[in-house]
Nucleic acid binder design. Structure first.
Length: 462
RNA sequence: UCCUCAGUAGCUCAAUGGCAGAGCAAUCGGCUGUUAACCGAUGGGUUGUAGGUUCGAGUCCUACCUGAGGAGCCA
């Protein structure tokens, strides 16, 4: 008999009711007495478990009643309605076959564990309710992002993970080398990278944006979605050394077009997850954040706020709010300022636009005022910066003089400058921290809990 | 990197400078259509590490390690 998924049992209950079925999965918990036992079985296909009832008519009843948690079993039985309150149906077992034993020192108990403890057993935590929900939503969210862009004709670009540029400006980089670190070749006192794998220095990418621009100027609308690496010594609940980013790039688009696209993306993928993962979302709302569903539904339904950086600064100055750091136009917004804006003033996602050029990257398009650039950050309650965006500087001379102002080496960027010479139309793009999006959608507070095997400073356990 | 807090049984946590404990888990037994089942019994400790103060340190002091929260940096 074909094995039926637990998801199918829940989604098509009427089809299976009073029918013989075979299911296979792992024991989440087991309760038994002399005459009857109950197994909550999870088969991986669905967030919820199915209750398996077995009594003395089931072969090997006594030994089945002692099986440890996490034992893998196959159950043959009949789907019946359940008398008890907590489940609409259950499986009455005729036979239970052990596929793979577990052990009584299994670290996950029938109780609530701390997130810190679960991080130490990252190889087992996907078997818990919370992580089962998180990683299913992460998968659905990734799919939603591809759907959004593919439906709109965006081309998915695989930007390089290995890069030769060490001055992308987005953060500290991991060096990649095949040189023997115990016997490094030298030339005139310096490391001789001509003997390294690529014949030059190489790093892991901190952003695929510059390469995405290449493709935007050929395919018009493109996006990247892949891993990114930053070796910064940052120790917060929102930073990881390895994370995923989505970096769309739109040709013939200014900052406003960019922001329209960002808002559509966020609303579309949030709505998608609410639709596809109702059980998981109810769980998050229950156990992590009672206001989650209300907040996400309002995100889908309402306009994002918009304010210029200069307006935001004067709004903060006039707010009367006590801040640890004074608000100053030249110094940029502190985290406390951003939180006040998104959580107290607007209480929803807010675009802050036109930042001082000194605070932003060289490639952002300079405004006519001579002091700001066409850039925006999308700030969301609870997370802070979710999206960083800008119109790119398409004017060759302006870009060149800005790079010279910043004393940047020009040679590595010859191709980036050359893009401006041949039909370098206005274009815009943005970067979304995928894990931050997962956090925002699930209510999970620590980035380490939305990554399968998180890498942070001093931590690469599994 | 800086600031703050924490580290005691497998897990979650108690213990005034004076005998190191509880709940859950595990093991054994009982019992019941159970829902983190329930009831009884049993085993389980170099109190993060190294020094110091003291008649006596889980408790006070110093350094280090680990974790968490916040800041900076950013996505």
């Amino acid at each position: 008999m074909a094995v039926v998924s637990v998801k199918s049992l829940y989604r098509d209950t009427a089809v299976h009711l009073n029918q013989a079925v075979t299911v296979s999965g792992w024991i989440r918990t087991l309760r038994a007495s002399n005459t009857i036992g109950f197994i909550e079985l999870n088969d991986g296909s669905f967030f919820k478990n199915v209750q398996v009832v077995f009594d003395a008519s089931c072969p090997d009843f006594a030994s089945l009643a002692k099986l440890p948690i996490a034992t893998a079993i196959t159950v043959r039985g009949k789907v019946v309605t359940s008398d008890a309150a907590k489940q609409p149906f259950e499986i009455f077992a005729h036979a239970i076959n052990v596929e793979a034993m577990s052990d009584n020192d299994y670290p996950l108990q029938k109780k609530r564990h701390s997130l810190e403890y679960l991080r130490e057993i990252a190889h087992l935590r996907p078997r818990t309710n919370l992580f089962s929900a998180v990683f299913r939503v992460r998968s659905v969210l990734a799919h939603a992002i591809h759907c959004f862009f593919q439906e709109r004709g965006f081309v998915y670009v695989h930007s390089p993970i290995l890069t030769g540029s060490d001055a992308e400006g987005a953060g500290e980089m991991f060096r990649v080398t095949t040189l023997d670190l115990l016997n490094v070749p030298r030339h005139n006192g310096k490391v001789d990278f001509t003997q390294d794998f690529f014949g030059r220095e190489a790093y892991l990418t901190v952003s695929g944006q510059l390469e995405a621009e290449i493709f935007a100027l050929a395919f018009r609308n493109v996006y990247t979605f892949g891993p990114t690496f930053r070796s910064e010594n940052s120790n917060t609940s929102r930073h990881a050394a390895e994370f995923w980013m989505i970096e769309p790039e739109l040709a013939f688009a200014d900052l406003q077009d960019n922001m329209t696209n960002i808002e559509e993306l966020i609303k579309c993928v949030v709505a998608y997850v609410l639709r596809e993962c109702p059980e998981e979302m109810v769980f998050f709302n229950e156990f992590l954040d009672k206001g989650l569903l209300t907040r996400l539904e309002s995100v889908v339904g309402s306009e994002f706020a918009e304010i210029t950086y200069t307006e935001a600064v004067s709004l903060l100055k006039q707010s009367g709010q006590k801040f640890e750091f004074a608000v100053e136009w030249e110094k940029g917004l502190q985290t406390e300022h951003e939180k006040y804006l998104s959580e107290q003033v607007f209480k929803r996602p807010v675009f802050v636009t036109h930042y001082p050029k000194e605070l932003k990257s060289f490639y952002m398009r300079q405004n006519n005022d001579g002091r700001t650039v066409a850039a925006t950050d999308l700030l969301v309650p609870g997370i802070g910066e979710l999206v960083g965006a800008s119109q790119r500087e398409e004017r060759y001379d302006v870009l060149l003089s800005r790079m010279q102002e910043l004393n940047m080496p020009l040679a590595p960027y010859w191709w980036y400058l050359e893009l401006r010479k041949y039909g370098g139309v206005k274009h815009s793009g943005y970067g979304v921290g995928f894990e931050r999006l997962v956090m925002y959608v699930t209510g999970v507070a620590n980035i380490r809990d939305v990554i399968a095997c998180p890498r942070t400073v001093g931590n690469l356990k599994i």
